[in-house]
Design a protein around this nucleic acid. Structure first.
Lengths: 201, 201
DNA sequence: GCCTTCGCTTGACACTTGTCAAGAAAACTT
DNA sequence: AAGTTTTCTTGACAAGTGTCAAGCGAAGGC
Protein backbone atom coordinates (compact mmCIF):
# COMPACT_ATOMS: atom_id res chain seq x y z
CA UNK A 1 0.00 0.00 0.00
CA UNK A 2 1.13 3.57 -0.52
CA UNK A 3 2.21 5.19 2.72
CA UNK A 4 -0.96 6.65 4.12
CA UNK A 5 0.50 8.84 6.83
CA UNK A 6 4.24 8.51 6.34
CA UNK A 7 6.46 11.53 6.78
CA UNK A 8 8.47 11.63 3.55
CA UNK A 9 5.61 12.91 1.45
CA UNK A 10 8.18 14.74 -0.58
CA UNK A 11 9.88 11.48 -1.54
CA UNK A 12 6.55 10.03 -2.53
CA UNK A 13 5.65 13.11 -4.52
CA UNK A 14 9.02 13.18 -6.19
CA UNK A 15 8.39 9.68 -7.52
CA UNK A 16 5.02 10.80 -8.80
CA UNK A 17 6.70 13.65 -10.61
CA UNK A 18 9.28 11.28 -12.02
CA UNK A 19 6.55 8.99 -13.25
CA UNK A 20 4.67 11.95 -14.66
CA UNK A 21 7.75 13.07 -16.54
CA UNK A 22 8.15 9.65 -18.13
CA UNK A 23 4.45 9.46 -18.86
CA UNK A 24 4.57 12.78 -20.66
CA UNK A 25 7.24 11.46 -23.00
CA UNK A 26 5.09 8.55 -24.09
CA UNK A 27 1.80 10.40 -24.04
CA UNK A 28 3.23 13.19 -26.13
CA UNK A 29 4.59 10.77 -28.66
CA UNK A 30 1.64 8.41 -28.97
CA UNK A 31 -1.34 10.36 -27.74
CA UNK A 32 -3.69 9.60 -24.90
CA UNK A 33 -5.51 6.63 -26.39
CA UNK A 34 -2.51 4.71 -27.64
CA UNK A 35 -0.16 5.22 -24.73
CA UNK A 36 -0.53 2.12 -22.59
CA UNK A 37 0.71 1.89 -19.05
CA UNK A 38 3.24 -0.71 -20.11
CA UNK A 39 4.58 1.60 -22.78
CA UNK A 40 4.70 4.46 -20.34
CA UNK A 41 6.53 2.35 -17.78
CA UNK A 42 8.83 1.14 -20.53
CA UNK A 43 10.05 4.69 -21.03
CA UNK A 44 10.71 4.99 -17.33
CA UNK A 45 13.13 3.40 -14.87
CA UNK A 46 10.26 1.36 -13.45
CA UNK A 47 8.09 -1.60 -14.30
CA UNK A 48 4.51 -1.46 -15.38
CA UNK A 49 3.05 -2.38 -12.02
CA UNK A 50 4.48 0.62 -10.23
CA UNK A 51 1.92 2.93 -11.72
CA UNK A 52 -0.79 1.57 -9.47
CA UNK A 53 1.42 2.06 -6.50
CA UNK A 54 1.58 5.78 -7.06
CA UNK A 55 -1.65 6.38 -8.90
CA UNK A 56 -5.10 4.96 -8.52
CA UNK A 57 -5.62 4.44 -12.24
CA UNK A 58 -4.52 5.61 -15.63
CA UNK A 59 -6.77 8.64 -15.58
CA UNK A 60 -5.21 9.92 -12.40
CA UNK A 61 -1.73 9.50 -13.83
CA UNK A 62 -2.65 11.35 -16.99
CA UNK A 63 -4.32 14.20 -15.18
CA UNK A 64 -1.46 14.49 -12.77
CA UNK A 65 1.01 14.51 -15.63
CA UNK A 66 -0.69 17.16 -17.68
CA UNK A 67 -1.17 19.34 -14.64
CA UNK A 68 2.47 18.86 -13.82
CA UNK A 69 3.44 20.03 -17.27
CA UNK A 70 1.03 22.89 -17.66
CA UNK A 71 1.99 24.30 -14.29
CA UNK A 72 5.26 25.38 -15.87
CA UNK A 73 3.65 26.54 -19.10
CA UNK A 74 1.28 29.14 -17.90
CA UNK A 75 4.17 31.47 -17.19
CA UNK A 76 5.74 31.01 -20.58
CA UNK A 77 5.01 34.51 -21.82
CA UNK A 78 5.38 36.36 -18.55
CA UNK A 79 8.92 37.42 -19.34
CA UNK A 80 7.73 38.73 -22.67
CA UNK A 81 5.01 40.71 -20.96
CA UNK A 82 7.38 42.03 -18.36
CA UNK A 83 10.30 42.99 -20.54
CA UNK A 84 8.70 44.39 -23.66
CA UNK A 85 8.75 48.17 -23.82
CA UNK A 86 6.81 48.76 -26.98
CA UNK A 87 3.88 47.19 -28.74
CA UNK A 88 5.99 46.12 -31.69
CA UNK A 89 8.61 44.60 -29.45
CA UNK A 90 5.97 42.64 -27.58
CA UNK A 91 4.44 41.28 -30.75
CA UNK A 92 7.83 40.17 -32.01
CA UNK A 93 8.81 38.52 -28.76
CA UNK A 94 5.41 36.87 -28.42
CA UNK A 95 5.47 35.55 -31.96
CA UNK A 96 8.97 34.24 -31.43
CA UNK A 97 8.05 32.43 -28.26
CA UNK A 98 4.99 30.88 -29.87
CA UNK A 99 7.06 29.51 -32.72
CA UNK A 100 9.78 28.40 -30.36
CA UNK A 101 7.50 26.35 -28.18
CA UNK A 102 6.12 24.52 -31.17
CA UNK A 103 9.64 23.78 -32.24
CA UNK A 104 10.69 22.60 -28.80
CA UNK A 105 7.61 21.00 -27.37
CA UNK A 106 5.32 19.96 -30.19
CA UNK A 107 4.50 16.58 -28.60
CA UNK A 108 3.39 18.24 -25.39
CA UNK A 109 1.09 20.59 -27.24
CA UNK A 110 -0.33 17.75 -29.27
CA UNK A 111 -1.05 15.95 -26.04
CA UNK A 112 -2.77 18.99 -24.61
CA UNK A 113 -5.13 19.28 -27.54
CA UNK A 114 -5.67 15.57 -27.47
CA UNK A 115 -6.72 15.63 -23.84
CA UNK A 116 -8.84 18.72 -24.25
CA UNK A 117 -10.71 16.98 -27.04
CA UNK A 118 -11.01 13.73 -25.12
CA UNK A 119 -12.52 15.67 -22.25
CA UNK A 120 -15.58 16.14 -24.45
CA UNK A 121 -16.01 12.36 -24.43
CA UNK A 122 -14.72 11.44 -20.99
CA UNK A 123 -16.24 13.31 -18.13
CA UNK A 124 -13.49 12.50 -15.62
CA UNK A 125 -11.04 14.65 -17.56
CA UNK A 126 -13.22 17.72 -17.64
CA UNK A 127 -12.45 19.35 -14.32
CA UNK A 128 -8.71 19.37 -14.84
CA UNK A 129 -8.98 20.47 -18.45
CA UNK A 130 -11.35 23.29 -17.64
CA UNK A 131 -9.03 24.53 -14.94
CA UNK A 132 -5.95 24.45 -17.13
CA UNK A 133 -7.75 26.06 -20.03
CA UNK A 134 -8.76 28.92 -17.76
CA UNK A 135 -5.13 29.35 -16.72
CA UNK A 136 -4.08 29.46 -20.36
CA UNK A 137 -6.74 32.03 -21.09
CA UNK A 138 -5.42 34.17 -18.27
CA UNK A 139 -1.90 33.78 -19.61
CA UNK A 140 -2.95 34.99 -23.06
CA UNK A 141 -5.02 37.77 -21.59
CA UNK A 142 -1.97 39.13 -19.82
CA UNK A 143 -0.26 39.35 -23.19
CA UNK A 144 -3.19 41.03 -24.87
CA UNK A 145 -3.83 43.60 -22.16
CA UNK A 146 -0.17 44.43 -21.97
CA UNK A 147 -0.13 44.88 -25.72
CA UNK A 148 -3.12 47.16 -25.51
CA UNK A 149 -1.44 49.24 -22.87
CA UNK A 150 1.77 49.57 -24.83
CA UNK A 151 -0.19 50.45 -27.94
CA UNK A 152 -2.21 53.03 -26.07
CA UNK A 153 -5.39 51.18 -26.91
CA UNK A 154 -7.94 48.91 -25.29
CA UNK A 155 -8.65 45.25 -26.03
CA UNK A 156 -11.27 44.87 -28.72
CA UNK A 157 -12.60 41.54 -27.45
CA UNK A 158 -13.20 39.91 -24.08
CA UNK A 159 -10.58 37.54 -22.74
CA UNK A 160 -12.27 34.29 -23.82
CA UNK A 161 -12.56 35.54 -27.38
CA UNK A 162 -8.98 36.66 -27.65
CA UNK A 163 -7.81 33.38 -26.18
CA UNK A 164 -10.00 31.29 -28.46
CA UNK A 165 -8.74 33.07 -31.56
CA UNK A 166 -5.05 32.96 -30.69
CA UNK A 167 -5.44 29.38 -29.62
CA UNK A 168 -7.02 28.59 -32.96
CA UNK A 169 -4.05 30.14 -34.68
CA UNK A 170 -1.65 28.16 -32.56
CA UNK A 171 -3.48 24.91 -33.08
CA UNK A 172 -3.52 25.31 -36.85
CA UNK A 173 0.18 26.05 -36.77
CA UNK A 174 0.82 22.95 -34.68
CA UNK A 175 -1.23 20.87 -37.06
CA UNK A 176 0.61 22.20 -40.08
CA UNK A 177 3.95 21.87 -38.33
CA UNK A 178 3.24 18.19 -37.82
CA UNK A 179 3.07 17.58 -41.53
CA UNK A 180 5.15 20.39 -43.01
CA UNK A 181 7.66 21.14 -40.26
CA UNK A 182 9.79 24.20 -39.74
CA UNK A 183 8.64 26.48 -42.58
CA UNK A 184 5.21 26.75 -41.02
CA UNK A 185 6.59 28.70 -38.08
CA UNK A 186 7.40 31.79 -40.08
CA UNK A 187 3.80 31.82 -41.19
CA UNK A 188 2.66 31.71 -37.60
CA UNK A 189 4.77 34.73 -36.71
CA UNK A 190 3.39 36.59 -39.70
CA UNK A 191 -0.15 35.77 -38.63
CA UNK A 192 0.48 37.00 -35.12
CA UNK A 193 1.79 40.29 -36.47
CA UNK A 194 -1.45 40.72 -38.37
CA UNK A 195 -3.78 39.60 -35.62
CA UNK A 196 -2.44 41.35 -32.54
CA UNK A 197 -3.26 44.82 -33.88
CA UNK A 198 -6.81 43.62 -34.40
CA UNK A 199 -7.10 42.64 -30.77
CA UNK A 200 -6.57 46.15 -29.41
CA UNK A 201 -7.58 49.47 -30.84
CA UNK B 1 -15.02 -11.17 -51.39
CA UNK B 2 -16.39 -7.77 -52.28
CA UNK B 3 -17.53 -7.61 -55.88
CA UNK B 4 -14.46 -6.53 -57.77
CA UNK B 5 -16.00 -5.65 -61.09
CA UNK B 6 -19.70 -6.17 -60.58
CA UNK B 7 -22.18 -3.73 -62.05
CA UNK B 8 -24.24 -2.67 -59.07
CA UNK B 9 -21.59 -0.42 -57.66
CA UNK B 10 -24.40 1.78 -56.46
CA UNK B 11 -25.79 -0.97 -54.26
CA UNK B 12 -22.33 -1.61 -52.86
CA UNK B 13 -21.73 2.06 -52.25
CA UNK B 14 -25.12 2.51 -50.69
CA UNK B 15 -24.23 -0.11 -48.08
CA UNK B 16 -20.97 1.69 -47.42
CA UNK B 17 -22.91 4.87 -46.84
CA UNK B 18 -25.31 3.04 -44.57
CA UNK B 19 -22.41 1.66 -42.58
CA UNK B 20 -20.82 5.09 -42.48
CA UNK B 21 -24.00 6.60 -41.14
CA UNK B 22 -24.14 4.06 -38.33
CA UNK B 23 -20.46 4.48 -37.64
CA UNK B 24 -20.90 8.22 -37.28
CA UNK B 25 -23.48 7.70 -34.57
CA UNK B 26 -21.13 5.65 -32.47
CA UNK B 27 -18.00 7.62 -33.29
CA UNK B 28 -19.70 10.86 -32.44
CA UNK B 29 -20.88 9.52 -29.13
CA UNK B 30 -17.75 7.74 -27.97
CA UNK B 31 -14.92 9.30 -29.92
CA UNK B 32 -12.46 7.68 -32.27
CA UNK B 33 -10.44 5.70 -29.78
CA UNK B 34 -13.28 4.19 -27.82
CA UNK B 35 -15.61 3.31 -30.65
CA UNK B 36 -14.95 -0.34 -31.39
CA UNK B 37 -16.11 -2.06 -34.53
CA UNK B 38 -18.43 -4.23 -32.50
CA UNK B 39 -20.00 -1.18 -30.93
CA UNK B 40 -20.31 0.47 -34.31
CA UNK B 41 -21.91 -2.61 -35.80
CA UNK B 42 -24.15 -2.85 -32.76
CA UNK B 43 -25.67 0.50 -33.66
CA UNK B 44 -26.28 -0.72 -37.18
CA UNK B 45 -28.53 -3.34 -38.77
CA UNK B 46 -25.49 -5.55 -39.32
CA UNK B 47 -23.09 -7.74 -37.44
CA UNK B 48 -19.54 -6.87 -36.54
CA UNK B 49 -17.95 -8.91 -39.30
CA UNK B 50 -19.59 -6.99 -42.10
CA UNK B 51 -17.24 -4.08 -41.68
CA UNK B 52 -14.39 -6.00 -43.26
CA UNK B 53 -16.59 -6.93 -46.14
CA UNK B 54 -17.08 -3.30 -47.11
CA UNK B 55 -13.94 -1.76 -45.70
CA UNK B 56 -10.37 -2.90 -45.54
CA UNK B 57 -9.89 -1.87 -41.94
CA UNK B 58 -11.15 0.45 -39.24
CA UNK B 59 -9.17 3.38 -40.51
CA UNK B 60 -10.77 3.17 -43.92
CA UNK B 61 -14.22 3.06 -42.38
CA UNK B 62 -13.53 6.08 -40.21
CA UNK B 63 -12.06 8.11 -43.02
CA UNK B 64 -14.91 7.19 -45.32
CA UNK B 65 -17.42 8.13 -42.64
CA UNK B 66 -15.98 11.49 -41.83
CA UNK B 67 -15.63 12.34 -45.49
CA UNK B 68 -19.21 11.27 -46.00
CA UNK B 69 -20.32 13.62 -43.26
CA UNK B 70 -18.17 16.60 -44.08
CA UNK B 71 -19.19 16.48 -47.70
CA UNK B 72 -22.56 17.80 -46.62
CA UNK B 73 -21.12 20.27 -44.13
CA UNK B 74 -18.96 22.39 -46.31
CA UNK B 75 -22.02 23.98 -47.84
CA UNK B 76 -23.63 24.79 -44.50
CA UNK B 77 -23.21 28.54 -44.77
CA UNK B 78 -23.67 28.89 -48.49
CA UNK B 79 -27.30 29.88 -48.12
CA UNK B 80 -26.28 32.51 -45.59
CA UNK B 81 -23.70 33.87 -47.98
CA UNK B 82 -26.13 33.84 -50.87
CA UNK B 83 -29.17 35.33 -49.18
CA UNK B 84 -27.74 37.99 -46.91
CA UNK B 85 -28.11 41.49 -48.23
CA UNK B 86 -26.28 43.44 -45.60
CA UNK B 87 -23.27 42.95 -43.41
CA UNK B 88 -25.33 42.95 -40.25
CA UNK B 89 -27.78 40.46 -41.66
CA UNK B 90 -24.95 38.15 -42.65
CA UNK B 91 -23.36 38.29 -39.23
CA UNK B 92 -26.66 37.49 -37.57
CA UNK B 93 -27.44 34.61 -39.90
CA UNK B 94 -23.91 33.25 -39.62
CA UNK B 95 -23.92 33.44 -35.84
CA UNK B 96 -27.30 31.73 -35.74
CA UNK B 97 -26.16 28.90 -37.95
CA UNK B 98 -23.02 28.38 -35.92
CA UNK B 99 -24.99 28.08 -32.73
CA UNK B 100 -27.59 25.90 -34.41
CA UNK B 101 -25.09 23.35 -35.66
CA UNK B 102 -23.61 22.99 -32.21
CA UNK B 103 -27.09 22.44 -30.86
CA UNK B 104 -27.97 19.91 -33.55
CA UNK B 105 -24.73 18.13 -34.28
CA UNK B 106 -22.41 18.48 -31.33
CA UNK B 107 -21.29 14.84 -31.48
CA UNK B 108 -20.25 15.19 -35.10
CA UNK B 109 -18.21 18.25 -34.37
CA UNK B 110 -16.58 16.58 -31.40
CA UNK B 111 -15.66 13.72 -33.67
CA UNK B 112 -14.18 16.08 -36.21
CA UNK B 113 -11.91 17.71 -33.68
CA UNK B 114 -11.04 14.33 -32.29
CA UNK B 115 -9.95 13.05 -35.66
CA UNK B 116 -8.12 16.20 -36.54
CA UNK B 117 -6.14 15.89 -33.34
CA UNK B 118 -5.54 12.18 -33.82
CA UNK B 119 -4.13 12.95 -37.25
CA UNK B 120 -1.17 14.51 -35.47
CA UNK B 121 -0.42 11.08 -34.00
CA UNK B 122 -1.56 8.76 -36.78
CA UNK B 123 -0.17 9.49 -40.17
CA UNK B 124 -2.79 7.52 -42.12
CA UNK B 125 -5.45 10.03 -41.13
CA UNK B 126 -3.54 13.06 -42.30
CA UNK B 127 -4.40 13.18 -45.98
CA UNK B 128 -8.13 13.09 -45.45
CA UNK B 129 -8.03 15.54 -42.56
CA UNK B 130 -5.89 18.01 -44.45
CA UNK B 131 -8.25 17.88 -47.38
CA UNK B 132 -11.36 18.40 -45.28
CA UNK B 133 -9.74 21.17 -43.30
CA UNK B 134 -8.95 22.97 -46.51
CA UNK B 135 -12.58 22.65 -47.58
CA UNK B 136 -13.69 24.11 -44.26
CA UNK B 137 -11.27 26.96 -44.64
CA UNK B 138 -12.71 27.70 -48.07
CA UNK B 139 -16.21 27.59 -46.62
CA UNK B 140 -15.33 30.13 -43.94
CA UNK B 141 -13.49 32.28 -46.43
CA UNK B 142 -16.63 32.56 -48.53
CA UNK B 143 -18.40 33.94 -45.50
CA UNK B 144 -15.64 36.39 -44.67
CA UNK B 145 -15.16 37.73 -48.19
CA UNK B 146 -18.89 38.11 -48.62
CA UNK B 147 -19.02 39.99 -45.36
CA UNK B 148 -16.24 42.26 -46.49
CA UNK B 149 -18.05 42.98 -49.72
CA UNK B 150 -21.30 43.77 -47.99
CA UNK B 151 -19.47 45.97 -45.51
CA UNK B 152 -17.65 47.79 -48.29
CA UNK B 153 -14.33 46.68 -46.83
CA UNK B 154 -11.57 44.17 -47.47
CA UNK B 155 -10.57 41.19 -45.35
CA UNK B 156 -7.98 42.12 -42.79
CA UNK B 157 -6.36 38.68 -42.66
CA UNK B 158 -5.55 35.91 -45.13
CA UNK B 159 -7.94 32.97 -45.37
CA UNK B 160 -6.00 30.58 -43.13
CA UNK B 161 -5.88 33.15 -40.36
CA UNK B 162 -9.56 33.98 -40.50
CA UNK B 163 -10.40 30.29 -40.52
CA UNK B 164 -8.10 29.47 -37.65
CA UNK B 165 -9.55 32.21 -35.49
CA UNK B 166 -13.19 31.47 -36.16
CA UNK B 167 -12.48 27.78 -35.75
CA UNK B 168 -10.91 28.53 -32.40
CA UNK B 169 -14.04 30.36 -31.38
CA UNK B 170 -16.22 27.51 -32.52
CA UNK B 171 -14.13 24.88 -30.81
CA UNK B 172 -14.13 26.74 -27.54
CA UNK B 173 -17.90 27.08 -27.77
CA UNK B 174 -18.26 23.38 -28.45
CA UNK B 175 -16.09 22.59 -25.48
CA UNK B 176 -18.08 24.84 -23.19
CA UNK B 177 -21.35 23.56 -24.62
CA UNK B 178 -20.33 20.05 -23.65
CA UNK B 179 -20.17 20.97 -20.00
CA UNK B 180 -22.52 23.94 -19.73
CA UNK B 181 -25.02 23.34 -22.52
CA UNK B 182 -27.41 25.75 -24.15
CA UNK B 183 -26.50 29.05 -22.45
CA UNK B 184 -23.08 28.98 -24.07
CA UNK B 185 -24.55 29.49 -27.50
CA UNK B 186 -25.67 33.05 -26.88
CA UNK B 187 -22.12 33.80 -25.92
CA UNK B 188 -20.90 32.39 -29.19
CA UNK B 189 -23.25 34.62 -31.17
CA UNK B 190 -22.08 37.62 -29.18
CA UNK B 191 -18.47 36.77 -29.90
CA UNK B 192 -19.14 36.44 -33.60
CA UNK B 193 -20.75 39.86 -33.64
CA UNK B 194 -17.60 41.28 -32.12
CA UNK B 195 -15.13 39.38 -34.25
CA UNK B 196 -16.55 39.66 -37.75
CA UNK B 197 -16.05 43.44 -37.91
CA UNK B 198 -12.42 42.84 -37.00
CA UNK B 199 -11.98 40.55 -39.97
CA UNK B 200 -12.79 43.18 -42.59
CA UNK B 201 -12.10 46.83 -42.61
C1' DG C 1 -33.17 -27.32 -60.74
C1' DC C 2 -28.37 -27.09 -60.19
C1' DC C 3 -24.36 -24.03 -59.35
C1' DT C 4 -21.95 -20.10 -58.79
C1' DT C 5 -21.60 -15.75 -56.78
C1' DC C 6 -22.91 -12.37 -53.36
C1' DG C 7 -24.11 -10.68 -48.71
C1' DC C 8 -23.76 -11.47 -44.32
C1' DT C 9 -23.16 -14.03 -39.65
C1' DT C 10 -20.68 -16.63 -36.51
C1' DG C 11 -17.01 -17.89 -33.99
C1' DA C 12 -12.46 -17.96 -33.39
C1' DC C 13 -7.44 -16.09 -33.51
C1' DA C 14 -3.77 -13.48 -31.56
C1' DC C 15 -2.88 -9.67 -29.12
C1' DT C 16 -3.35 -5.66 -26.03
C1' DT C 17 -5.42 -3.42 -22.33
C1' DG C 18 -6.01 -1.79 -17.16
C1' DT C 19 -5.84 -3.79 -12.89
C1' DC C 20 -4.31 -6.18 -8.98
C1' DA C 21 -2.39 -9.74 -5.83
C1' DA C 22 1.68 -12.10 -4.22
C1' DG C 23 5.89 -11.70 -3.04
C1' DA C 24 10.95 -10.21 -3.66
C1' DA C 25 14.08 -6.50 -2.69
C1' DA C 26 15.41 -2.49 -0.48
C1' DA C 27 15.21 0.89 3.20
C1' DC C 28 14.53 2.03 7.76
C1' DT C 29 13.94 1.19 12.78
C1' DT C 30 15.16 -0.46 16.87
C1' DA D 1 21.21 -8.10 13.49
C1' DA D 2 16.49 -8.88 13.33
C1' DG D 3 12.13 -7.19 12.26
C1' DT D 4 9.08 -3.97 9.98
C1' DT D 5 7.67 -1.04 6.61
C1' DT D 6 8.18 0.85 2.20
C1' DT D 7 9.08 0.20 -2.61
C1' DC D 8 9.00 -2.19 -6.68
C1' DT D 9 8.66 -6.52 -9.86
C1' DT D 10 6.45 -10.33 -11.67
C1' DG D 11 2.92 -12.82 -13.33
C1' DA D 12 -1.62 -13.47 -13.84
C1' DC D 13 -6.63 -12.16 -14.69
C1' DA D 14 -10.67 -10.85 -17.27
C1' DA D 15 -12.18 -8.01 -20.66
C1' DG D 16 -11.83 -6.02 -24.96
C1' DT D 17 -9.52 -5.19 -29.51
C1' DG D 18 -9.04 -5.66 -34.94
C1' DT D 19 -8.98 -9.13 -38.07
C1' DC D 20 -10.24 -12.97 -40.74
C1' DA D 21 -11.67 -17.72 -42.16
C1' DA D 22 -15.47 -20.87 -42.53
C1' DG D 23 -19.93 -21.36 -43.64
C1' DC D 24 -24.94 -20.37 -44.43
C1' DG D 25 -28.99 -18.64 -46.83
C1' DA D 26 -30.55 -16.13 -50.71
C1' DA D 27 -30.14 -14.35 -55.65
C1' DG D 28 -29.28 -14.84 -60.07
C1' DG D 29 -27.60 -17.05 -64.26
C1' DC D 30 -27.65 -21.19 -67.00
Amino acid sequence: MPPVKSRPVDKYDRRRDELAESALLTLGEMGYARASLREIAGNSPFSHGVVHYYFQDKTELVIYSVRYYKARCVTRYDAVVRDSESAVELVEAFADKLAQTIRDEAPMHRLWYDLRTQSMFEEPLRAAITEIDAALEAMIWRVVTRYATLAGATPSTPAPTAYAMLDGLFQQALLAYTTAGEPVLDGLAAQVRIVMPLLAR
